[in-house]
């Protein structure tokens, strides 16, 4: 091997070391801890607790539905947003695109605070309701699951738009015009050309949004001071609280969460593969 071929490997080494130290080793440690008791004995007790404990079942359910709804709603809205953005031009497009990439990093405590001043009980919307002679708290609770879902959808949208934009760029204007010239209606174009072309990108985006929501912790934690019962918050309490310090149980929950993610990704992949196979046949 020539000496200069070594340089790329050398260049990537720091990254590999970082990966090893902060991704691989912790993952191995979590997996190891999940099948051991604090005493060090091998046991599947932790998994039994996670699957049979009422609090864990509720947490799993909450996490799953929060993730599912925020993914679906986030995907739908970001597809519309990306479409609109891809059709806009000039200054508007530049500003909105900049705003979108800015919002991708808007999460956690600052996002929570923004929602509190908007929709909290002293928030702007609460005062609007008051002026209208009504009371926001009778209709909406920012600190419950529906409030959290709203915040999650909010942080999914910019990421979704960001991921969908290239796909819309690949959907060429000429195709739409060609379809029109051949007498296709707008819905027919989208049904037979637009959506099939976008589907792989939408599936990939859905996967990323799903993972994004399932793994989110800071926003939910900040919002309810750690009282919201979802998987990530529950886990963080087991490793940082002074009342229940159970890192092994938390590890088992992390493994379950990772499995949930893998299953979701596999389903997604299978579906999108089947779908693209179908469109290939249809060609």
């Amino acid at each position: 091997m020539k000496r200069r071929d070594l340089w790329p490997y050398l260049a990537v080494t720091p990254l590999l070391i970082l990966l090893l130290l902060f991704e691989v080793l912790p993952a191995v440690q979590v997996m190891w801890a999940s099948v051991h008791l604090p005493s060090g004995a091998f046991s599947l007790e932790n998994f039994k607790d996670v699957f049979t404990g009422a609090i864990w079942q509720a947490a799993m359910k909450n996490s799953f539905f929060l993730t599912l709804w925020s993914t679906l709603a986030g995907l739908g809205l970001s597809v519309l947003g990306a479409w609109a953005l891809s059709r806009s031009t000039g200054r508007v497009r530049e500003v909105v695109a900049a705003l979108v990439s800015l919002c991708i990093n808007f999460a956690g405590v600052p996002l929570t605070f923004a929602f509190i001043i908007l929709l909290g009980s002293s928030g702007v919307v609460a005062y609007l309701f008051q002026m209208a002679g009504s009371d926001l708290r009778n209709h909406f609770n920012l600190f419950g699951p529906s409030g959290l879902a709203l915040v999650y959808i909010y942080f999914q949208i910019p990421l979704g738009i960001f991921l969908m934009l290239p796909a819309f760029a690949g959907l060429r204007r000429e195709w739409e015009e060609a379809a029109e010239n051949l007498g296709a209606r707008s819905w027919q174009f989208w049904r037979y050309v637009g959506l099939p072309v976008l589907t792989p990108a939408m599936a990939a985006t859905a996967s990323v949004l799903f993972a994004n929501a399932l793994g989110a912790q800071a926003t939910a934690y900040a919002m309810t001071n750690g009282m919201m019962n979802i998987m990530t918050v529950r886990m963080s309490r087991l490793v940082s609280g002074d009342v229940d310090y159970e890192p092994n149980l938390a590890s088992a929950a992390a493994v379950v969460l990772a499995l949930l993610m893998v299953v979701a990704l596999l389903i997604n992949q299978t579906l999108s593969r089947r779908f693209s196979a179908y469109t290939r046949e249809g060609r």
Partner: peptide
């Protein structure tokens, strides 16, 4: 209302 009764949350009016 699922929120801890911390001083900061009283101050915010939550």
């Amino acid at each position: 209302k699922q929120l801890d009764v911390l001083a900061a949350n009283w101050q915010k009016g939550e």
